[in-house]
Design a binder for these strands. Structure first.
Lengths: 146, 146
DNA sequence: TGCTGATTGTCAGTATTACTGACGATCAGC
DNA sequence: GCTGATCGTCAGTAATACTGACAATCAGCA
C-alpha cells in the first residue's frame, strides 16, 4: 500500500496506531465502572483462560516487561481480583489466579470489552469485520512463529 | 470476534498492539541509518505532502500533543531536515517545511519505510495485504468523520 | 553430592515520554 | 479597540517503562 497515494494517513503505521488508539479509548471507558483498564483486562484475560500461568508467562504473552508486571499484579491483588501463589513445582514462580470476585469482575469486563470492540468495528459490515480480525490474526501469529 | 475463542491473543486489542509493535520495530530499524525514527518519519511525511502545514496541523493529523510537537520539530530542525517559518497569513503559526536535504532524507526514508511495511505484510498474500490496508483505512476514516 | 549458570520475582534508581498549566503574541468577531 | 480564542513555547510534573542489582530457586553436570 501507500505507493498509490500520498496521504500520510494511508500508511499502515498511521492506521494501526489510530485504530489501536481509538480501541484503547473505547475499552478504557467501558471498563472504568469495574475499576480496571485495558491493561488490567489483558492480564485478567490471560489468567482467566487456559492453564495457570506464572507472572513471567503472562508478561511474555502480553509483551510487557516482567518488572512492569510486578506493579500490575500488585494493583490487581490489592483490588482483590487475583492472588499470587508460589508454584509448588517451581518455587521461583508465582502463579497468578483469579479470585472468586475476580471471576465475576472478569465476566462483566469481558462483556464491556466486547461492546467496545463492536463499537470500533461498527463502520464495517459484519463479514468484513471478521475479515479484518482474521487477517490480523494471521499476521501476528506468523510473527510469533518466526 | 473473540466470542468464538478463549485465546487471549484473539482480542482485537492484542492483535492491533502487537502488529503495531512489530511494525514500529521494523520501521525504526530501517530508518536508523538516516538518523530518524518512526515518529520523525511521520512528521516528515505530513510535511512532505499536500499544502504547507502549521505545527498544530501536523500534530493534529498525527494525534500527538502540540507541546510534544515542539521538541519533535526542534530535533528535526537541528538535524537540518525541516525549517520553521512564521506563516505570513497568520503569524501565530509556524509553517514547517522540508529543506532540500530534508527532501533527500525523506525520499530515502520513504523507501525504507515501505520495505518495513512489506516485511510486516510478508506472511500475507498480496491481495490479502491490500485487503487489510483497505479495511483499516475504512475503519479509521470512519472514526475521523464521526 | 556440590558447583555453576540460568531463571523468577522484586526493588531502587533512572530514563523516557507525554501531559498540565501558564505565558506572550497574534488573530477573528463584534 | 475590546474580548475571547488560537498558536507556539516553556517549566514543572505525572505516568510509564526500563536498567541493574539482589536473593531465592532451579536444572545440568561432574
Amino acid at each position: 500500500m501507500s505507493r498509490d497515494s500520498d496521504d500520510p494517513r494511508d500508511l499502515l503505521a498511521y492506521l494501526l496506531k489510530h485504530a489501536h488508539l481509538r480501541l484503547t479509548g473505547l475499552v478504557d471507558a467501558g471498563l472504568a465502572p469495574y475499576d480496571i483498564d485495558g491493561k488490567d483486562f489483558g492480564v485478567l484475560r490471560v489468567v482467566a483462560t487456559g492453564e495457570p500461568k506464572s507472572q513471567a508467562a503472562v508478561a511474555q504473552i502480553l509483551a510487557i516487561d516482567r518488572t512492569t508486571m510486578v506493579a500490575l499484579v500488585d494493583a490487581l491483588e490489592r483490588k482483590g481480583v487475583v492472588t499470587r501463589r508460589p508454584d509448588p513445582a517451581d518455587r521461583r514462580r508465582n502463579v497468578v489466579e483469579l479470585t472468586e470476585q475476580g471471576r465475576t469482575t472478569y465476566d462483566k469486563a469481558a462483556e464491556a470489552y466486547a461492546a467496545a470492540e463492536q463499537e470500533l468495528l461498527a463502520p464495517l459490515e459484519e463479514a468484513r469485520a471478521s475479515d479484518l480480525a482474521r487477517l490480523l490474526r494471521e499476521l501476528v501469529s506468523a510473527e510469533r512463529s518466526a
